[in-house]
C-alpha cells in the first residue's frame, strides 16, 4: 500500500444557494521517497487538494464532499479532530507559497520551530532549542545559533522559506506537502530551495507532494506528474513518460507556453480562451472551448479517465492525436 492514497476526491464550495464542485474525482498515490508534482493554472483546484490532504480546509466554506484520503494506512477523513492534529506538523507537514507572511511576525523564528517540536515530541525547552539549531543548519541557514533569535522580518524571503522547511521537517515527517514553495522567490533562490528539498528527501526518505504552476520546476524535481485542469486530473504519468509523449492537448499547451532557451521561436504560444468559471455548468469536456481538437463529441460528453499506456492515464477523447 502506498504512503498516500487519494481516491475520487470531491471538494465543493458552499455558496448561499448551492454547492459548487471545485475538485472532482481526483485520485493519485504517493510512495515513500517519491515526489509527485501537481501542475495546473491558478484556480484549477491543486491548492485545495493539498489543503484537503493536510486537513486545513477547516471552517472555510470549502468542504470535502466525497472520496477518501488514506495516509500510512489510516483513513484521514474518518479520524477525529484530535487524531488529525496529532498527525499535522508531525508525520505530515506543509510549506506554503508565501514565505513573507507564513511566519508569525511577533515571535522569534526559534520559538516558532520549538513550538512545533514540543507540540509533538516530549522535549524540554532547551532540548527543543538545540534541535532547532540543528534543523536551521540542516536547511543551510548561516550562523544558526545566532539566527535562531531573529524575527521573521529580519530575514530574506529565501531564508524564511528555509525556516518554514526546517519547521516542517522538525518532526521527521513521512510526507511533505509543498504548495508553490518557490513561486514568490527570486529565480536563483528558487533553485537553491528546490535543491535543498531534493537533498533532504534523499537523506530522510520523505515523500513530497509538490504543487506548482510551473511545468519546468515539476520536470526537474518530480518522479511523477498529475496535470490538473478545472478540478480534474487531465493527465497523469511518470515524469519521463509524460514528457516522452504528451497526450492531453492542455498539457501540450502548458509546455508550449514555457520559453525554451535553445529553441528559436517567433512567439510563445499561449493557450487561447479562458477557464470556464465554476458557475458555468458543463455538459462536455471542460477544456473543449479552448481546444483545437474539439469536436461535437467533446461538447456533449465529458471524457472518462483512460489508461493510454500502463501508468499513463488521460482524460481526452482524442488523446495523443495531433492537429492534422
Amino acid at each position: 500500500m502506498a504512503l498516500l492514497e487519494v481516491e475520487n476526491l470531491e471538494i465543493a464550495v458552499s455558496t448561499q444557494r448551492n454547492l459548487l464542485p471545485v475538485v472532482q474525482g481526483v485520485s493519485f498515490t504517493v510512495d515513500e521517497n517519491e515526489t509527485l508534482g501537481i501542475v495546473g493554472e491558478s484556480g484549477c483546484g491543486k491548492s485545495l487538494t493539498s489543503l484537503a490532504i493536510m486537513g486545513l480546509l477547516g471552517t472555510s466554506p470549502v468542504r470535502i464532499t466525497g472520496g477518501s484520503i488514506h495516509f500510512d494506512g489510516m483513513n484521514l477523513l474518518a479520524l477525529s479532530e484530535r487524531e488529525r492534529r496529532a498527525i499535522m506538523g508531525n508525520r505530515m507537514a506543509m510549506i506554503f507559497q508565501e514565505p513573507m507572511t507564513s511566519l508569525n511576525p511577533v515571535y522569534r523564528i526559534g520559538d516558532q520551530i520549538v513550538e512545533n517540536l514540543r507540540q509533538h515530541q516530549n522535549l524540554s525547552h532547551a532540548a527543543a532549542r538545540d534541535r532547532s539549531v540543528e534543523l536551521l543548519s540542516l536547511v543551510r541557514i548561516p550562523d544558526p545559533s545566532e539566527r535562531i533569535d531573529s524575527f521573521p522580518h529580519q530575514m530574506s524571503g529565501g531564508q524564511r522559506q528555509r525556516v518554514m522547511i526546517a519547521m516542517a521537517l522538525s518532526c521527521d515527517p513521512k510526507l511533505l506537502i509543498a504548495d508553490e514553495p518557490t513561486t514568490a522567490l527570486d529565480v536563483t533562490v528558487q533553485k537553491e530551495v528546490l535543491d535543498l528539498m531534493a537533498d533532504l528527501q534523499s537523506r530522510m526518505g520523505t515523500a513530497i507532494v509538490l504543487i506548482s504552476h510551473d511545468l519546468g520546476v515539476i520536470a526537474e524535481t518530480c518522479d511523477k506528474v498529475a496535470v490538473m485542469y478545472r478540478g480534474k486530473i487531465a493527465e497523469a504519468a511518470s515524469t519521463a513518460d509524460l514528457f516522452a509523449e504528451l497526450l492531453h492537448p492542455y498539457t501540450r499547451g502548458l509546455l508550449n507556453s514555457i520559453p525554451v532557451v535553445d529553441r528559436d521561436v517567433e512567439w510563445l504560444e499561449a493557450i487561447p480562451g479562458r477557464v470556464p468559471t465554476l458557475e458555468e455548468t458543463l455538459t462536455g469536456c471542460a477544456f473543449q472551448p479552448r481546444c483545437e481538437l474539439a469536436t461535437e463529441l467533446c461538447a456533449c460528453e465529458a471524457p472518462q479517465t483512460t489508461q493510454f499506456k500502463p501508468g499513463h492515464s488521460v482524460q481526452c477523447h482524442f488523446a495523443g492525436q495531433d492537429r492534422s
Binding site: 496529532a86 498527525i87 499535522m88 506538523g89 507572511t101 507564513s102 511566519l103 508569525n104
Partner: peptide
C-alpha cells in the same frame, strides 16, 4: 485571515 495563522494550524496546535 493571515497566512501565519494557517501555518500555526498546520503545526497541529489546539
Amino acid at each position: 485571515r493571515e497566512d501565519h495563522v494557517r501555518t500555526a494550524r498546520a503545526k497541529g496546535l489546539h
